[in-house]
Design a protein around this nucleic acid. Structure first.
Length: 879
DNA sequence: CGCTCCCGCCATGCC
DNA sequence: GGCATGGCGGGAGCG
């Protein structure tokens, strides 16, 4: 090609830019090609004096482009001048020119020849990858621009990206310092670390991309504008930081470049598609759908990708997805970075002190990010210095100032995650608000509601409500006395859902009497309620069966499920909600779609509300539905409240509740759930797992439960007795979770179902909504027996306690938690199914609980399996 | 026709 | 006002 080009090019391509006189100089260059007059010589070049001058020359010689340009210039002149003849070369040129004059224009460098990637290669060719430390190579933008024959604007594009990787740094106006790749590994490591903080969870999953999307999507709301622009890592001069330096939007190209690189480093596959990257990088902007914005982002990404490609860090590939083939880039650069690189670290003053702190700080950020995502740029980060570790690394350079920026960067990174999530959510889930829609959508999409909390069943009431953040507070307060919040939320749920983000604080908030817990964290928590012991006593076969079933399958399932989900999501964009879906869904459902069951099946037609969900189908969901049904019962709010209270009571009362159950309108299912609830819970476990084991799940187990008597409930309340809630982190990750303890309201006239149902519904919705934090309130089912604790009062108070667990447990046991998330709730579901037959079921259900009782995450999986096995029952919602 | 992405207008900020 | 930066998006090249 080169040759070819040369012949042609030379003559014609006189470029406007350079008016160089070269004709004569050409003569000098004859060495290379007779034909190609290279004119390196011509140029006033900087080369001569630089140590690397020779290298540059060689490079230029090697680079067709370079030559072309040179040629152009030279040729150009001669032609214009018409004097060229002097040198032999010139002659050639002339000749060429003559022939080709017309072509001349043709010749003009094709678009490709002017590509940023090529330009970058030329640029890089000028400087050694590993310059001697002794030599400081300065880069003059003007000089380079003229040498490369491009406008300065283009040089900025290149330099900005290089700067993001610290290959160069700005020394002064128009002056950059070339560092080469000495620090590249460090920089990449920093970016990786920063990226992991933000995206780490996601990355775990195979489909990082998907994950990313999910997570990001979910959180999008949180994102705050401010955070967006900050540079992840600032290598820029120290001064800049404080000063105006940051103006200009923080140099988005640099930031984008860093984020883009982070995505690669975080992703397991090392492949990032442009559209995903664009979404993630569009930080926030709320919905601004802006197709145009997206396009602009993509354009920038191409710019960045071209430079990175020239650096040999990535290469273009195509990813074939459902939708079709999508452009993507694969990381081909170093994946692991030696720690040694840190040598530099000590330099920055700030860096040293905080190693551990950093982590802590970082963690906080993350959580906060997840919760709210708010980072005010400067303030928070700078002060916080969350990412010091990273910084250090980064800071390797003497300039401490960079560190600050780095901090910012960290924050941004974090934000990114949140943003992405939000967006994703938005994309997928906007509709979520409406429960029905959600459900339907979920079904369709397969999005399962991760959590389907099924509140319902009498005793166990779980309510998972996705509440808006704002809601939270309220809820909490309400909880105790009134389960209403939950119920309400459930009904209202839609609205609430969005709010979720507030949890942001990151810390789980418990409200003392409140039933709910908020987990701000980004990651989801899985709460597993203790099992109900009752079951044991009670022989319900079904329950037992269920439990056993669920257990088996579940174990394996959950994790896989999650993954699947992610994968699925990936595959099917359509289901935004998928994330949320707990593994359970998948598990249980092959129906897949049934997400969580939220409700769907609502067997009972009773609850209209439930209906929404019920509908369709989720056969699997059925159980849930039943639960829902209960919930569904029109009474909804009130009932819900009552129920909740009742639930509490129940929990406390445990058995009593059972009694009630029968009473409850809902026969079977409700009963079941109730029963489950009633049944004493086995000890609950509190399990918190970092992401590690479970792919993405976090578990919280409350040890509640008293098997027989659930005294715990009361106790729990205070503590958090959340039964168990399993939430697939992946799914939930973005959401803050709130758990409300279930109530035992043995007495509650209403069938548990009503509330629970409502709750469940909400839940589902919420899940769909994903964005909002999810609140799970389980009504704990405290078995009356246990209820020792305070909650005994059926009506109100009890609720307060956050005893979630009982319910959950039950549900779990019963349900087998299809979805990790819902575990607790699921129980309810179970009941439903079985119960459907008879109210009595509750007892039978109980057994299930036992089985169901949580185990570890794995157990969760089992539950799922159970569900599956059971079929309808299984459906429990999703995790 | 859609993916790429060059090109350069023009805003932002500093001097 | 001039210059350095760099955001941004129109629209053209290319496959």
């Amino acid at each position: 090609e080169n040759i070819f080009d040369r012949s042609r090019m030379a003559p014609k391509t006189p470029i406007k830019n350079e008016p160089i006189d070269l004709s004569k100089q050409k003569g000098c260059t004859p060495e290379r090609n007779p034909i190609t007059p290279v004119k390196i010589i011509d140029r006033p070049q900087p080369d001569p004096w630089t140590p690397t001058a020779n290298l540059k020359i060689l490079v230029s010689a090697a680079s067709p482009d370079m030559r072309d340009r040179e040629k152009k210039k030279e040729l150009f002149r001669p032609i214009e001048n018409s004097e060229q003849s002097d040198t032999p070369d010139s002659l050639q040129y002339d000749i060429v020119d003559d022939s080709t004059v017309d072509e001349f224009e043709k010749q003009r460098p094709s678009r490709k020849q002017k590509s940023l990637g090529l330009l970058c290669q030329k640029f890089l060719a000028r400087y050694p990858n590993y310059p001697l430390s002794t030599e400081k190579t300065t880069i003059s933008l003007d000089e380079v621009a003229s040498i490369l024959g491009v406008e300065r604007r283009r040089i900025y594009d290149i330099v900005n990206v290089l700067e993001s990787l610290q290959l160069v740094s700005r020394v002064a106006k128009n002056q950059y310092c070339w560092h080469g790749r000495h620090n590249l590994s460090q920089t990449l490591k920093m970016l990786q670390d920063a990226g992991e903080l933000q995206y780490g969870e996601l990355m775990t999953s195979q489909h990082k991309e998907l994950d990313l999307e999910y997570k990001f999507g979910e959180r999008k709301k949180a994102v705050i504008p401010d955070s967006q622009d900050r540079p992840l890592l600032d290598f820029s001069e120290p001064d800049c930081i404080s000063a105006s330096a940051n103006s200009r939007k923080d140099k988005s190209l640099r930031i984008m470049s860093q984020k883009f690189v982070m995505l690669f480093l975080v992703s397991k596959t090392k492949i990032v598609t442009l559209d995903i990257a664009a979404k993630i990088l569009i930080e926030e902007t709320q919905d601004t759908v802006d197709h145009s914005k997206f396009k602009t982002k993509v354009r920038r990404l191409y710019d960045i990708a071209n430079v990175l490609t020239s650096l040999g860090l990535i290469k273009k590939v195509h990813v074939t997805e459902e939708r079709g083939r999508k452009p993507a880039f694969k990381w081909i650069g170093p994946v692991e970075f030696p720690e040694s690189t840190d040598e530099l670290r000590g330099h920055s003053p700030t860096s040293d002190p905080l190693p551990e702190t950093q982590k802590g700080a970082c963690a906080q950020y993350q959580t906060s990010a997840t919760g709210k995502q708010r980072f005010t740029r400067h303030a928070s980060f700078n002060s916080a210095q969350p990412c010091e570790a990273t910084r250090r690394k980064v800071s390797s350079e003497p300039n401490s100032p960079h560190q600050e920026r780095q901090d910012e960067n960290c924050s941004k990174m974090i934000n990114l995650a949140s943003v992405c999530r939000q967006k994703i959510e938005e994309d997928t889930g906007n509709k979520a608000c409406d429960p029905e829609t959600i459900l339907s959508s979920a079904k369709k999409s397969n999005i399962t509601l991760p959590v389907s909390l099924l509140p319902v069943p009498g005793d166990s009431d779980f309510c998972v409500n996705p509440l808006p953040q704002a809601v939270f507070p309220v809820v909490q307060a309400d909880v105790p006395s009134v389960s209403l919040p939950i119920g309400i939320s459930s009904q209202a749920s839609h609205p609430s859902m969005p709010a979720a983000s507030k949890t942001e604080n990151g810390k789980p908030t418990l409200v003392p009497s409140q039933p709910f817990l908020c987990f701000p964290s980004s990651s989801l928590f899985m709460l597993c309620g203790g099992l109900q012991e009752n079951n044991l006593s009670e022989p319900l076969p079904t329950a037992g069966d269920l439990g056993s079933r669920s257990a088996e399958p579940q174990a394996a399932v959950p994790p896989t499920v999650c993954q699947k989900r992610s994968s699925q999501k990936c595959s099917s964009p359509s289901a935004p909600g998928d994330d949320e879906e707990p593994a359970a869904k998948k598990q249980t459902l092959e129906h897949s779609d049934l997400p969580i069951s939220l409700v769907v099946p609502k067997k009972s037609s009773e609850s209209p509300k439930a209906e929404s969900s019920p509908g369709s189908g989720c056969s699997a969901a059925v159980h849930l539905e039943t639960n829902n049904l209960d919930l569904a019962s029109p009474a909804a709010p009130e009932t819900a409240n009552k129920e909740s209270t009742k639930l509490l009571d129940r929990q406390e009362q445990g058995k009593q509740s059972q009694k009630k159950d029968p009473d409850d309108p809902r026969p079977g299912n409700e009963h079941i759930s109730k029963e489950n609830a009633n049944q004493p819970f086995q000890p609950q476990y509190l399990y918190v797992q970092p992401t590690a084991g479970l792919s993405s799940f976090n578990f919280l187990f409350s040890a509640n439960q008293a098997p027989g008597a659930i005294s715990l409930a009361a106790n729990q309340l205070p503590s958090l007795s959340v039964p168990c809630v399993m939430v697939p982190s992946a799914a939930l990750a973005s959401f803050p979770l709130v758990c409300s303890s279930s109530f035992t309201s043995p007495l509650s006239p209403f069938p548990d179902g009503s509330f629970s149902a409502a709750a469940s519904t909400n839940f589902s919705m919420s899940s769909l909504a994903s964005t909002t934090p999810v609140f799970l309130s389980t009504t704990a089912v405290v078995t009356p027996k246990v209820s020792p604790t305070p909650s005994a009062d059926p009506q109100q108070p009890p609720h307060p306690a956050l005893h979630l667990s009982p319910v959950l447990t039950r549900s779990c046991s019963a349900v087998k938690l299809d979805s990790p998330v819902c575990m607790g709730h699921p129980v309810t579901l179970v009941k439903l199914q079985q119960p459907s037959s008879a109210p009595l079921t509750p007892k039978s259900i109980r057994p299930a609980h036992h089985e169901a009782f949580f185990k570890t995450p794995g157990s969760l999986g089992d539950p799922v399996a159970w569900k599956k096995n059971e079929g309808n029952q299984t459906r429990n919602a999703s995790s």
